[in-house]
C-alpha cells in the first residue's frame, strides 16, 4: 500500500488480472452480435464459396451446434492464433492484423504527440485568459475540430492542404523508397533501423498530415481538460507564492501550475485512445495508411467491398484491447505523476 516499485508491480499485476473478465466480456459481445443477428451466416460470410464446399460445409456444421460450443470453439481458435480468414477464404486474418497494428500505433502515437504539444499549451492559454478573446478563440478552435466529421477533415487535408503545403497524402513512403525489410511495421522506425536518413525524412513527411488530422479532431479533450484543471490550480497558494518569488509568468504557468494540472489531463488518455482509434478507420482509408483502421474499413465492407466477418470481429477485439491497455497506462501514469496516490 505504499509507493515502492514492488507496490507498483503488484498494482499492475492486479489490473492485468482485472482485464481478464473484461476481455472475456469483449469476446462474448463481439461473438453474440456477429453470430446471432445474421439469419444464415454461412452464406453471408463466404459469399464466394460454392454451396457445399468444404468451407461452407464446415461453417454450417459449426452453426448447428449449441451456442456455447460455438463460443468455446471461437475462443480456442483465438488463443491458437487462428483468427479466421477473409471473405473469400484466401487470406488469414491474424498475419494481416499483426502487421497492421504497429502502423496504426505509430499514427496514433504521432497524433497523441501533436495533441500534447499543441493541445496542452492551448489549454494553458485559455485558462490564463479565461473569459477573454484568447479563451474564446481556443474554444472555437477545439470545438471546430470536435465538430468536423473525421471524413471531411481528412479529405480537405488530403486534397487541398497537402498540395498547398507540399506534403504527401498517400501511403507511408513515396515511390522513391524501394521496398525494404520492415522490422517493426512502423514506417519511421523501420527507416531509421535501415539507417537511411532520406527514407526517414520521407516517412516523417508522410506521417504529418494523417497525424495532424487525427490530432485536430481529438484536440478538444486535451485542451478542455488542461483548461479546466489549470483554472482549478491557478488560484492556489503555491502558484501565488511562485509569482511572489518573482518568477516570470511563463515559469509560473508552465512549470509550477501546469505540472499539477497535467495530472488530471492524463486521466483522459483512455478516452482519447478510443477517439483516436475510431478516427483511424476514416483517416487511414483516406490517406491510404496501411494500418488496422483501413483494414477495419475494408473488413466492414466500405467502398463496396464484401464484409469480412472474421476480420471485423478481430478488428473490434483489437480496438477494445487497445482502449483497455490505454486506460491501464493512464492509471499507472496518474499514479507516477501524483505522489499522493498509493498503489492499491
Amino acid at each position: 500500500m505504499g509507493r515502492s516499485p514492488s507496490d507498483l508491480a503488484i498494482f499492475i499485476g492486479k489490473r492485468l488480472l482485472q482485464l481478464i473478465p473484461v476481455l472475456l466480456g469483449i469476446t462474448i459481445l463481439t461473438f453474440v452480435f456477429t453470430h446471432i443477428s445474421v439469419v444464415n451466416p454461412c452464406a453471408a460470410w463466404y459469399p464466394h464459396q460454392p454451396i457445399g464446399s468444404p468451407i461452407t460445409a464446415h461453417c454450417e456444421a459449426m452453426f448447428h451446434q449449441p451456442l456455447q460450443n460455438q463460443y468455446y470453439q471461437y475462443l480456442v481458435n483465438l488463443v491458437h492464433g487462428n483468427w479466421g480468414t477473409s471473405a473469400n477464404g484466401a487470406q488469414q486474418v491474424y498475419p494481416v492484423v499483426a502487421a497492421d497494428v504497429p502502423a496504426t500505433l505509430e499514427l496514433v502515437l504521432a497524433a497523441l504527440f501533436l495533441m500534447i504539444v499543441i493541445g496542452i499549451p492551448l489549454g494553458v492559454i485559455a485558462a490564463q485568459s479565461s473569459g477573454r478573446w484568447a479563451d474564446h478563440f481556443v474554444r472555437i478552435f477545439y470545438l471546430t475540430g470536435w465538430a468536423t466529421p473525421t471524413y471531411l477533415g481528412a479529405v480537405v487535408a488530403a486534397i487541398y492542404l497537402g498540395p498547398y503545403l507540399g506534403l504527401p497524402s498517400h501511403g507511408e513512403y513515396s515511390q522513391l523508397v524501394p521496398p525494404f525489410h520492415q522490422w517493426t511495421h512502423m514506417s519511421v522506425v523501420d527507416a531509421l533501423l535501415a539507417g537511411n536518413l532520406p527514407w526517414t525524412v520521407d516517412a516523417i513527411r508522410h506521417l504529418i498530415l494523417p497525424a495532424a488530422v487525427l490530432a485536430f479532431i481529438n484536440m478538444g479533450i486535451a485542451t478542455r481538460m488542461t483548461r479546466s484543471s489549470m483554472l482549478e490550480v491557478l488560484p492556489l497558494d503555491y502558484v501565488k507564492s511562485a509569482r511572489m518569488k518573482g518568477l516570470s509568468e511563463f515559469w509560473v504557468l508552465y512549470k509550477h501550475a501546469l505540472r499539477n494540472a497535467l495530472i488530471t489531463t492524463t486521466t483522459v488518455l483512455g478516452v482519447t485512445a478510443g477517439g483516436l482509434l475510431s478516427g483511424t478507420v476514416v483517416v487511414e482509408s483516406v490517406f491510404d495508411w496501411p494500418g488496422i483502421g483501413q483494414y477495419a474499413y475494408q473488413a466492414i465492407g466500405g467502398g463496396e467491398g464484401i464484409p469480412n466477418f472474421d476480420g471485423a470481429i478481430a478488428v473490434v477485439a483489437v480496438f477494445a484491447i487497445g482502449v483497455v491497455v490505454a486506460n491501464l497506462i493512464a492509471d499507472v501514469l496518474y499514479g507516477v505523476l501524483d505522489p499522493r496516490v498509493a498503489w492499491r
Binding site: G25, I26, G274, L277, S278, V281, P307, A312, A320
Partner: peptide
C-alpha cells in the same frame, strides 16, 4: 456495472460498426 465496464472498453464507433455490419 460490470456489463457497463465491458461496453465502455470498446471504442463505441467500432462496436457500432460491427453491429451495423450484422444488422
Amino acid at each position: 456495472l460490470r456489463i457497463t465496464d465491458i461496453f465502455l472498453a470498446f471504442p463505441s464507433l467500432i462496436l457500432a460498426l460491427a453491429i451495423a455490419v450484422s444488422l
